[in-house]
Simulated scan of single mutants.
Amino acid sequence: MKKVLVIEDHAMMRRNVLVILEMEGYQVASASNGREGLALVSTEQPDLILCDVMMPELDGHAVLRALRASPLTASVPFIFLTAKGEKIDQRTGMNLGADDYLTKPITRNDLVAALDARFARKEQQRVNFDRLFVDPEPLLVLGITMREAEVLLWIVQGKGNNEIGGILGVSTQTVKKHVCAILDTLGVDNRSSASIRAMEVLVSGHS
């Protein structure tokens, strides 16, 4: 079940949104201001955040800026809530990484459609990311052998030498030799740097 965090300082609006979400089968959490909302993100770990723009203590832009600055929350879908007639610079929000804007008062259809769209996009991104790790062949452009490409593909996924050996059916010592050859060919000093080079190739090949 997906969890949605609602950060909204207007009590009635917050309650209305929560009721709609609960009726649609979402788990919900709520905060009455930006500072409280940020604190809840780490404990509730929401799948999506709905956030008012103009709030006391910490406004929506500051909340989004803080979330996008952390690797743990940088990719959480984020939708701004704005009151009709508010002079909000949507470009600022989008540049900060907002996924969408919804104008209050929010209808049930608009809210459900926005969440469905965001979650569908998130799922497609996950599927695309998973596909990056299916085929080692794109890594051959780095000048390594096919076996080294297979090893590097598992290194990118955080596997250790013992695990890679078990997966590929070779000894740990053989894996170590492949790793050394990979680092030497790529001109890097460690597995993390090799992983970064590999990800650059994998992502560019699927963009």
Score class of each variant (00 low, 15 high):
4 V>K: 00
6 V>Q: 01
7 I>R: 06
7 I>Q: 03
17 V>Q: 10
21 L>I: 10
27 Q>C: 08
29 A>P: 04
30 S>E: 15
33 N>V: 00
35 R>Q: 15
35 R>W: 03
39 A>N: 09
41 V>Q: 12
42 S>H: 13
42 S>V: 05
44 E>F: 04
45 Q>N: 14
52 D>T: 05
55 M>T: 03
58 L>A: 07
59 D>T: 02
67 L>E: 06
70 S>M: 09
71 P>V: 02
73 T>G: 01
74 A>H: 08
76 V>Q: 11
76 V>R: 06
81 L>Q: 12
87 K>T: 11
87 K>E: 14
91 R>T: 14
97 G>L: 02
98 A>Y: 07
102 L>E: 04
102 L>W: 01
104 K>R: 10
104 K>M: 02
106 I>T: 11
107 T>V: 09
110 D>S: 12
112 V>R: 15
116 D>C: 04
125 Q>D: 13
125 Q>F: 05
129 F>L: 08
130 D>E: 13
132 L>V: 11
135 D>M: 03
137 E>C: 00
139 L>M: 04
144 I>F: 04
144 I>H: 01
147 R>K: 14
149 A>F: 07
150 E>S: 11
153 L>K: 03
154 W>A: 10
155 I>Q: 12
156 V>K: 10
156 V>T: 11
157 Q>P: 01
158 G>V: 09
162 N>C: 01
166 G>R: 12
171 S>I: 00
178 H>R: 08
181 A>C: 06
185 T>C: 11
186 L>M: 13
186 L>V: 04
191 R>S: 09
193 S>A: 15
196 I>A: 14
199 M>N: 10
201 V>S: 02
205 G>Y: 06
205 G>L: 02
